[in-house]
Structures are given as structure tokens and as C-alpha cells.
Amino acid sequence: MRETSRTRRSRGAAAALMAALLLLTGTLAGCDSSSDARGNGAPATRRPSPKPTPLWDRSPDSIAAVGDSITRGFDACVVLSDCPEVSWATGTDTTVRSLALRLIGAPAVAERSWNYARSGADVADLAEQMTQAAAKKPELVTVMVGANDACADSEERMTPVDAFRRSFEGALKELRRTAPKAQVYVSSVPDLKRLWSTGRGDPLGRQIWKLGICASMLGNADDESPKAELRRTRVHERVVAYNEVLKDVCGKDMRCRYDGGAVFDFRFSGDQLSRWDWFHPSKNGQGRLAEIAYRNITAATAPRA
């Protein structure tokens, strides 16, 4: 009987030892699966996947320009006429030193830069211009548009902000359909109220304004009544809203860079405005636009708004 009890006790001890070993093994395995690579027992944390780095070539070798009369050099050389040779984007005038001259050099500008902007164009015209630009497979497309959307015959006829967004989104989509890797540089809309304030003191400029240039802002330039001031303020706010759209839509495209509001913030002086209309940039003003664009395009990081 003593032998049988001893045997049972031995078997029980062995079973208990085996259960303890199994429990210990399971516990260690659980610890291994939750520890970090250093084995310090701390819970492992899953690192988020890195976001793709936006692609931006700071020295593009071909340029297409789209937009409105500013990019066509309107009123910079001859009254009420385009002068694309002084365009800030693609011009050949060496005193302006356009973006194209600065980036790709004089010998190649004629072969590797194209200007599809049109005087009088607004954002609804941009998709057609983008189609023309995309056909050239440019490395960079410059965009300056929106002034004509605010410069309507009356305040009520300004382009609604939602419609402005739809048109700009559609234009970028059209570009991406044919030229998915083209970079896009978007200039902000100039501060039209500041232009009114700068040019209103010139008698010739005021006479030209009466021909209908940006009537929503420049009409009745000498009127300082509360009603006129309210009208100008609403036009100003619309320009600000357009720039927010340009910034937002461009920010969703990894190959698009907004100027951070640099053109809107630039204080055009008398020397930088056309001596005929005190509204469009002169040759000097076109040069300043080229400087702003070149600085932002070649910067290591995009400008902050």
C-alpha cells in the first residue's frame, strides 16, 4: 500500500510540473509577441506608413502658361493690346526676365515655352487652355486666373465661389488626363482693392477705367460713399475666397504648388502698373511677377499662405 501511494504522489507531482511548464511556456510566448524589438517588455507600437513625398522638380525644362490678360502682357507695351513678349511667364524680353528665361534660358525659350492665356479669360475658360497646354507635355504649367471672375460689369455678376471651385477642379482634371506628371504653379489673384487705391489718383487711369475695366471694383473710382465702399469690400472678399479655393484645390494635387498668396500680397507701385490703365502690370510689374514665381518654384519647400 505504501508503494502504491508513493507512485500516485509521484505521478501527481509530475502532472503538476508538466502543467506548470506548459503555463510558463505559454506566458513567455505571449510576452514575446507583445514585446518590442529591443526585448524590454514594452508593448510594440505600430508605426504608421510614411506618406509619399510630394514630387517637385525645381528646374523644369519646359513651360506652358494659362490664364488671362496679365499673362498676355496686356497694356504693358501698347494701349489696349496684348504684348506676350513681356509676359512674366513665357516672355522673351530681357528686361523682364520671364520665368521661362530664368529657368530654361534664352536659346530654348521659343522651342520649350508656350503661352495659351487669353485676355478676358476667366476660370471657366481654363479647361480649354489646359487641353492645349497638356498637348505639349510641358514639365511645368503656370496658372494665373481669377481677376476677371471678380472684375465683372457689376458686383452681382461675379463668379460664385462654388462655380469657381468646380471650374478650377475641372481644369486640373483636364490637365491630368493628358499630362499626369506635369507640375503646376498657381499664382494668387492680385489684390484688386489695393490696385484701385494705388491708381485712383491718376487722371488718365480713371478715364481708362471708365471704359469698363473691372467695373465691379474700379467703377465710380472717386465715390467714397458707404455704399461704394461696401461694394469694393465685397469684391475684395470674393478675391480672398477665390485664393482660398486655389490654395485648397492645388494642395490636394501632389504636383501642384500655390504661391502662398505672394501675388495678392505684393504692393504694386506706380512704376509696376501700366501707364495706360493703372491696373495691369507694366514691364516692371511683369518682372516682379517673374521674380515671385521663380523664387517660389525653385524653393526647397512650398511657400506658406
Rank of each mutant, 00 (worst) to 15 (best):
Val123Tyr: 03
Leu103Tyr: 08
Val96Lys: 09
Pro203Ser: 07
Asp265Asn: 14
Met217His: 01
Asn115Gly: 04
Ala147Tyr: 02
Trp276His: 05
Thr301Gln: 12
Met18Asn: 03
Val239His: 02
Leu140His: 01
Ser10Phe: 09
Ala135Thr: 05
Thr71Pro: 00
Glu155Leu: 15
Ala100Met: 08
Arg165Ser: 08
Arg275Cys: 06
Arg194Leu: 09
Asp125Tyr: 01
Ser167Ala: 15
Pro84Met: 04
Ala117Tyr: 08
Val249Arg: 03
Phe266Lys: 05
Pro190Ser: 10
Leu126Pro: 03
Asp36Thr: 14
Arg288Asp: 03
Gly26Asp: 06
Gly201Gln: 08
Arg194Tyr: 14
Ala302Lys: 10
Gln272Glu: 15
Thr25Gln: 04
Arg47Val: 15
Pro43Trp: 11
Leu17Asp: 07
Ser197Trp: 02
Pro226Met: 06
Arg166Asp: 15
Ile70His: 04
Ser35Trp: 10
Ala42Ser: 14
Glu156Gln: 14
Ala29Asp: 07
Glu85Gln: 15
Val123Pro: 04
Gly219Phe: 11
Leu23Pro: 06
Arg6His: 09
Arg177Thr: 09
Val240Trp: 11
Leu17Ala: 15
Ser187Ile: 02
Asp32Pro: 01
Arg102Trp: 08
Lys210Phe: 03
Val249Phe: 08
Pro203Arg: 05
Leu23Ala: 15
Asp271His: 03
Arg288Val: 12
Gly146Ser: 10
Cys250Trp: 08
Lys252Gln: 15
Asp253Ile: 08
Val263Arg: 03
Leu172Ala: 13
Thr90Gln: 04
Ala147Cys: 03
Met130Ile: 01
Lys252His: 13
Cys250Gln: 07
Thr95Arg: 15
Glu111Pro: 00
Ala121His: 09
Glu139Cys: 03
Gln183Ser: 06
Thr25Leu: 14
Ala13Tyr: 07
Gln272Ile: 00
Ala300Val: 12
Thr27Gly: 13
Gly270Gln: 12
Ala133Phe: 04
Ser33Glu: 12
Val96Leu: 14
Ser274Arg: 06
Ala179Lys: 04
Ala108Met: 08
Asp75Thr: 04
Gly120Thr: 01
Ala290Val: 05
His236Trp: 14
Ala64Ser: 14
Ser154Asp: 14
Ala302Gln: 11
Gly41Val: 10
Lys51Phe: 00
Ala135Val: 01
Arg267Asn: 12
Arg255Asp: 05
Asp93Lys: 09
Arg232Glu: 05
Val249Leu: 05
Ala15Ile: 12
Thr301Pro: 03
Ala300Gln: 07
Thr178Pro: 01
Pro50Ala: 09
Asp122Trp: 08
Asp149Gly: 07
Leu230Trp: 06
Asp61His: 12
Arg231Val: 13
Ala37Leu: 11
Pro107Cys: 09
Gly201Ser: 12
Leu23Phe: 14
Phe168Glu: 10
Ala150Tyr: 04
Lys173Phe: 05
Asn40Ala: 03
Lys173Val: 06
Val184Pro: 04
Val66Gly: 10
Ala241Asn: 07
Val186Gln: 09
Ser282Met: 09
Arg38Glu: 11
Arg257Gly: 09
Thr198Gly: 04
Leu17Gly: 11
Ala14Gln: 10
Arg267Trp: 05
Gln129Val: 00
Ala171Thr: 08
Arg206His: 06
Ser87Val: 02
Asp277Ile: 00
Glu291Pro: 04
Leu80Met: 11
Asp253Glu: 13
Ser81Ala: 13
Asn148Cys: 10
Arg8Pro: 00
Glu3Pro: 02
Asp265Gly: 11
Phe266Asp: 00
Pro43Lys: 09
Leu192Phe: 11
Lys193Ile: 02
